[in-house]
Design a protein around this nucleic acid. Structure first.
Lengths: 335, 335
DNA sequence: CTGAAAGCGCTTACAG
DNA sequence: CTGAAAGCGCTTACAG
């Protein structure tokens, strides 16, 4: 009954206090001042539960990611949370650990908590889990789910743009012999990147030599072994792109181990722009995954859905090359 | 009015439905069954806002950390969230970016959201911010705040234990000449680690040579330059401990750059056990900061405080050495 | 063992 | 421009 205390103190009704708090027009200036003073004096803060119960909105958003330990996500979380916080929205955040069953539970829990909207920023998504939200009438937004993009708002990243820029850069440095460290065939996001790479390669009029594709597990270790294979080729590529930064870091280590200098003897380009790539030597040139922008677009989608606007349901973002020190002109040595 | 629908369907009052949902004893088995069926048939889920409004508890915990981008935190978040989730508690989580003003706001926001309890897992804490929670009667728990430990529940980590184990290990390998990469003098957590190192050193009967202490900025870059200084000493240490893993990684890079082999020519030990240390070559031996356990103890403290138990208000945890490949016996070379 | 009813703290037609 | 009152969906003494 706390709004009542404020009301008494200001000599008005609770309705008026409510109006002042929510910035409704049509309250006399003098009354507003009186209410504001009473609020200040009592340190009054509205009870969000009462408010939510009444309004049917909680100002609570759900954010679901794959894995807190994956250094890809912190920036995305950070950006999403900053936007929410600026709007007075709180974020409940959970991770699925790549487990579809957990995704299902995460969504259920969030609906039970009556969040206003959910951003599902995981790489693998099963539609069945999403239907819970549809049924509960909770807006959703996905990331990079091309197959579901027709039915659900989706923020997607056009990998090919990034690979195109990387290839522009390498070609300008004189590279023609370009290797690729791919990800596991079963991982759809890895396959998406591979396809985009091939597409960009073709657009640049380059051949794809099958022996210059090695496959890794998306982690440092996998990049190391994949790179070892590429380095053993004869002829070997003069530049290598990796599906993600962790494997690019592994590739760098493999080169070091083989006493092949980066970038002098071979150029390496990663993908994602994780914090780690500027911590290794040399700092890696990489294609930045626009994850902050993904968070922004996702947040916008949800807000718009809540406001009943139907226009902006999806967005496409483009990754860009970030130059650091792991690429150099093709040496004369191999010419 | 949704519990009413269930009640009607089961031919009971809402009170009885509520009793069944909350597992109160003393409802006839047959009635329970009827209510359960009605709940299942209607897919009924209690409205948490109504519940919170009535009960004065939200089953919402706040978790405040310094920095999402700091790879120290994900495991802590993960552990905390898993415990909460198992108890049907949701976590609102924010970060301060090392800014005391933001900590103040984070705590205020959480109180306004009427969380049941708050874990403040940041390195720097100003007491004034905490008083908001005290005033609002919201239980708190801190991490490694010795100065505040008398007034607030606190989970602290006894760094000296970890350094002691590291020194045991190095002595067993024949090392006597041990260098240290310290952190900035103004950073209290870095100073705490330095003091603990000195203490452990003394306990092992070793001298501290002032020129074998170099200072870095707690990041990879700082570790690199600090290590370069240590390597330039004559005589130089045969083993180096770093205040944190990021600087240990930098130290490793500096050794590589100087063509000094790790661990053959020099041993390196880090602190924290970040994921990154097993991604570099060689994987670093390090002292593991028990951050999962910190999360567990913190969560327990909060739960107990909520249950009105006064016994367990603080806890002390011990870091332990994790052996990997960056240490080796002192070479004969330097004998 | 169960129900009727009050009340948690708000917001919002409705009336004036 | 402002107030009286209903109602959001629960839980919990109280009564039987």
């Amino acid at each position: 009954m706390d709004i009542l205390q404020v009301a008494k103190r200001a000599n008005v009704s609770t309705a008026t206090v409510s109006r002042v708090i929510n910035g409704f027009p049509g309250v006399r200036e003098k009354t507003v001042a009186r209410v504001r003073r009473a609020i200040a004096e009592t340190n009054y803060v509205p009870n969000p539960n009462a408010r939510s119960l009444r309004m049917g909105r909680t100002r609570l958003f759900g954010l679901i990611i794959s894995d807190v330990n994956n250094p890809f996500f912190p920036e995305l979380i950070d950006a999403f949370e900053a936007l929410a916080s600026a709007e007075g929205i709180e974020v409940i955040f959970t991770h699925t650990n790549y487990d579809p069953q957990r995704l299902h539970n995460c969504i259920r829990r969030m609906i039970e908590r009556s969040v206003d909207a959910i951003a599902v920023m995981t790489s693998e998504v099963e539609e069945e889990s999403l239907r819970q939200a549809v049924k509960a009438n909770v807006p959703l937004v996905l990331m990079n789910q091309r197959k579901l993009a027709a039915k659900y708002p989706n923020v997607s990243v056009e990998y090919a743009t990034g690979f195109g820029e990387a290839l522009d850069h390498l070609l300008a440095l004189g590279h023609r012999d370009i290797g690729f460290i791919a990800g596991p065939p079963l991982l759809s996001s890895a396959q998406g990147r591979k396809e985009a790479f091939k597409k960009a390669l073709k657009a640049h009029g380059l051949q794809l030599r099958p022996e210059w594709i090695a496959t890794g597990d998306m982690r440092v270790e996998g990049g190391r072994t994949a790179m070892a294979k590429l380095l053993a080729c004869d002829p070997r590529p003069t530049a290598v792109l990796a599906t993600n930064d962790l494997m690019a870091v592994g590739a760098l280590q493999a080169a070091h181990a083989a006493h092949i200098r980066v970038p002098k003897d071979i150029s390496i380009i990663g993908f994602d722009d994780l914090p780690i790539v500027s911590m290794v030597q040399p700092p890696l040139t990489t294609i930045r995954h626009p994850r902050r922008e993904v968070a922004e677009q996702a947040f916008d989608c949800l807000q718009q859905a809540l406001q009943g606007k139907k226009n902006k349901t999806s967005a496409t973002l483009h990754p860009h090359l970030v130059l650091r020190n792991s690429t150099a002109p093709v040496g004369l040595r191999r010419r």
